[in-house]
Amino acid sequence: MLFNPSSLVFLMTLITGTMISISSTSWLGMWMGLEMNLLSFIPLINKNKSPYETEASMKYFLIQAMASILFLIAILSMEMCDFSMNNQSSYLICSALMMKMGAAPFHFWFPGVMEGIDWVNCFILMTWQKIAPFILISYKMINILTILVIFLSTLIGSAGGLNQNSVRKVMAYSSISHLGWMLSAMLISNSLWVIYFMVYSLMNMAVVYLFHSHSIHSISQSYFIKHNPALKFTMMISMLSLAGLPPFLGFMPKWLVIQNLAGQGYFFMLLWMVVSTLLTLYFYMRIMFASFMFMGQEVKWNLTKNSNELTSLTMMISMLGIPITTWMIL
């Protein structure tokens, strides 16, 4: 995708739209950046003109356009009306931005769009497309609405992925669950949100690379990854890291969020989030166990022949957190 000149142009305007949104000093400038980002992502989705991509791009455009209209109405009413309308406008702004990034209960479009696009666009949708809405939400954060969205996102993100066979939909519900954790990190501080988002993007990059390089689209396909135990081990480590189990890299930001939420007295919300994350562990383990089946048919680990350096790099990314999290716990 990146070697296509037109795709490269749209990718640059996608990045530029996000940068305009997060650096603008007026709400109208932020809206213009979000629109530029939206209109740049549509051609990236629909580059192969397949029916699935066309459907996904139409869904994405309609939902994002609806959220942009709500956002524009909110900022216009905030500027035109008196001070008493500012609180209602803040609710509308937060709701529009949460719809844009797919947080529950505005998540219904997210798994459907993820199902119809390729893995590179899935990675962009799960990471880069969330930067601008998150930063804009931090300007108008409302604790009551944010806590409600955290409860719903962690519940729906964990329960929605239980009966899915598509790996893309599993990753979509995983992203919704992580959205709840990122919003709770933003409740504490923006710096903690930056740490969580960077680690989540790194883990997503490792997992998406594995699925993209081996054309894995359903969980049943991972049963047929044979004669490459190193790949199976890498997939297991990446899944455990994305699930947030110690001592892997994904545990570090969750442990920071748990410590800070406990310090500020959000005990019930913390219990809810941890229990919901245990449910997400189930569908991560489905992918992991599927990749580890029929292990007895292989003779030995062959790390020299047919071994990809990038596969080894993804393993190192996920295992990077072992010394860090061990030091944090001690």
Rank of each mutant, 00 (worst) to 15 (best):
N228P: 12
L231H: 13
A262W: 11
S220T: 03
M235Q: 12
K140R: 14
P253K: 07
K254Q: 00
K232S: 01
V199Q: 04
I135H: 07
F211H: 12
R168I: 04
M198H: 03
I156G: 01
I188M: 00
I258T: 05
K254T: 02
I150L: 04
Y266M: 03
L152M: 13
L210E: 09
T234F: 14
F151E: 00
F251C: 04
H212K: 12
V207G: 12
I142K: 04
Y223E: 15
S153E: 01
V170H: 07
L183G: 00
V199L: 10
A230T: 15
F151L: 08
M235I: 13
L162Y: 08
P253R: 12
N204Y: 11
H217V: 09
N165I: 13
W193L: 13
L261W: 03
F134P: 03
I216G: 01
M252F: 15
F268C: 03
I137L: 07
H212P: 01
L179I: 09
L245E: 15
S215V: 09
L155S: 13
S222G: 05
F268I: 08
G250D: 13
A243E: 14
S166V: 02
Q164C: 01
G263P: 08
L187E: 09
V199A: 06
M182Q: 08
L155N: 11
S238L: 07
F224E: 15
L187M: 15
M273F: 06
S241A: 02
M141F: 01
Y209V: 08
N204G: 06
A230S: 14
L240H: 13
F267S: 12
K169L: 07
I195H: 02
S138P: 05
H214C: 12
I150D: 00
Q264F: 10
Q221R: 14
Q264M: 11
T234L: 11
W272A: 01
T234A: 15
I135R: 05
L231A: 14
N204C: 09
M141L: 03
M236I: 14
I131P: 03
S158T: 06
Y266E: 00
L210P: 00
N143D: 15
L155G: 12
L202R: 09
I131M: 07
L162C: 10
M205D: 05
A262P: 00
I176S: 01
L271P: 04
P246R: 13
L210V: 13
I237C: 14
K226C: 11
S175Q: 02
F233E: 14
S166L: 03
P133T: 10
A243Q: 14
M273N: 09
L256Y: 14
M203W: 05
F248P: 07
S153F: 04
I176M: 00
L162A: 07
P253V: 05
Y139W: 09
L210R: 11
L249E: 13
T234C: 15
W193M: 10
P246K: 12
V149L: 05
L202M: 15
Q129W: 10
Q129F: 08
M141R: 07
S215K: 13
F197D: 06
H212Q: 11
G161F: 06
V275A: 03
F251H: 07
K130F: 09
M205L: 15
N143Y: 13
A262E: 10
Q259V: 13
F248Q: 10
L155D: 06
N163Q: 08
V167C: 01
K232M: 08
